[in-house]
Nucleic acid binder design. Structure first.
Length: 452
RNA sequence: GUAUGCGUAGCUCAGUUGGUUAGAGUAGUGGUUUGUGGUUCCAUUGGUCGUGGGUUCGAGUCCCAUCGCGUACCCCA
């Protein structure tokens, strides 16, 4: 019997759950502080909702769920449709596991348009699934923690999201760098060389600028169908140096004849100006090479890198102008971010930066000395719980050594020893498991002591 | 989809140019201690060496296949 978990998925032990919940709670607190409300959506969505939103590569990575019942019934095995696996897939699978939380959210907004008021600020913390090859910081099932504002064009939203990113990583004591760009600037680049249809190829290639260098990026761009002439035209953009202000200034001149380029730069400039007044802890900078693969972004794009650990991006996001349009609700713009909780976990773990006091366990355990004693312990345990003190009674009357070991492993703070003697006196021998001290107390004294 | 590394006890791993009955630490169990853990000492359970085939007098070790896992690409949180 094979009892492994599926590749790229994990079991979470109690101690790991404590750490994970610590991350989720920090994120939740910040979201709530900014007035976002929580929603959830189903793990399963119709494939028609998911397909075509993430690019060609994304479609491949969707987990598809086989139709129930005898899905062969309606198939015509002579037709071409059953010989091409992609076409066959469409015939036998109509549902899939969600790939992210943004697309289901857009569907949610359209579906529940009468229940919500725009602008709508929601947060959502749920797992998503991708049929990827797992590796460091990459899983097939992982949690995204999304916050989105839909139904507002204001760039204040972009600013607020950056502020939230900064707040979350400050609270987690992780040093990060926030990188901003704008899809409109990338579109202007494509426009400049009249290769508008190659915008994805261009962005994907220049995304690697830092990683593989200018020459290799050029090689890749040529492979993707650009000409030498094209490359000469965009070279000055890719080789832009200096701080954010000077880069923006240079681009302003460069794109003076491009409407979309001007728009992108204006947006970027406004966001940066407002962010500056907030005095964030994290470095926020303009990065022209930041592309982000997801197809639906149209305006600002943002990505967060940990400066202390080599790891893929910890957070990503951007503005999408027409995601709800696909579901029949046009002209509504949204902007959002998503924290990758699992990658943040890996970073904190590698840096040993989880706080010490996040274990969440029983406060007091009654050791079990036998039938007579356990009856009294059960009653006392209930009294403690009434005071909101977590308590448990060890279920078996086994060697005390084993019981103590259990309490120790579980990091239980107090063990109550109630044997024949204590039962007669109506008192409890209370052992502090950290200091090792022992005291005789009655139940009311214990309540008082542990209440705070 | 491409490349590459690794599968030996529940877990972490040793195992020599192929050589007798495959080891250690840790966890588990029992005792030392019939009322005291983290931290004593002793004993003890546990493995078809991922699976199948081949080479050989002989394979955990070499070869082939297959399955599983990891890492780096592509792409992405």
């Amino acid at each position: 019997m094979n009892c492994n978990v599926v590749k790229g998925t994990r079991d979470f032990l109690p101690q790991q759950m404590n750490k994970r919940n610590y991350i989720f709670n920090v994120i939740k607190e910040v979201y709530k502080l900014h007035g976002f409300s929580q929603i959830e959506t189903p793990a399963l969505e119709n494939l028609s909702t998911l397909m075509g939103k993430y690019g060609e590569e994304g479609d491949k990575l969707l987990y598809k769920v086989l139709n129930s019942g005898n899905f062969l019934d309606k198939l015509d095995f002579e037709s071409e449709q059953t010989k091409d696996y992609k076409k066959l897939t469409n015939k036998i699978s109509e549902k899939g596991l969600r790939y992210d939380l943004t697309v289901p959210f857009a569907r949610f907004v359209v579906n529940n348009r009468n229940e919500i008021t725009l602008p709508f600020k929601r947060y959502q913390i749920q797992p998503v699934w991708r049929a990827d090859r797992p590796q460091k910081g990459r899983y097939r099932e992982f949690y995204q923690c999304d916050a989105d504002i839909i139904g507002s064009d204001s760039l204040l939203n972009e600013v607020e999201l950056c502020e939230m990113i900064d707040e979350v990583f400050t609270r987690l004591s992780l040093k990060v760098e926030i990188k901003l760009n704008n899809r409109k600037i990338l579109a202007a680049i494509a426009e400049l060389i009249q290769q508008e249809d190659k915008i994805i190829d261009i962005t994907v290639a220049i995304d690697k600028l830092e990683k593989i260098g200018y020459d290799k990026v050029c090689e890749e761009l040529i492979q993707r169908g650009l000409t030498k002439d094209n490359l000469n035209k965009i070279e000055p953009i890719l080789k832009l140096e200096g701080d954010t202000k000077s880069k923006i200034h240079a681009l302003k001149i460069f794109f003076q004849n491009s409407t979309i380029g001007q728009k992108g730069i204006e947006e970027l400039e406004e966001v940066f100006q407002t962010i500056e007044s907030l005095k964030l802890n994290s470095k926020v900078e303009f990065d022209i090479t930041l592309a982000r693969g997801l197809n639906y972004y149209t305006g600002a794009i943002v990505e967060v890198k940990c400066v202390e650990v080599p790891m893929g991006s910890l957070t990503g996001g951007g503005r999408y102008d027409n995601l709800t349009g696909i579901f029949g609700m046009p002209n509504i713009s949204g902007v959002g971010i998503s924290f990758g909780a699992d990658r943040i976990y890996d970073c904190l773990e590698e840096l040993k930066r989880f706080p010490q006091d996040i274990s969440n366990t029983t406060t007091l355990m009654f050791a079990n000395f036998g039938k007579q004693e356990e009856k009294q312990c059960v009653v006392w345990a209930k009294e403690l719980r009434k005071e909101n003190i977590s308590a448990e009674v060890y279920p078996d009357s086994v060697k005390l050594q084993k019981q103590m070991k259990y309490a120790n492993e579980k990091l239980i703070s107090y063990v109550a020893l109630v044997g024949e003697r204590e039962l007669e006196e109506g008192e409890i021998e209370l052992k502090n498991m950290i200091t090792g001290e022992q005291k005789k107390l009655n139940i009311d004294q214990i309540k008082e002591m542990l209440k705070s």
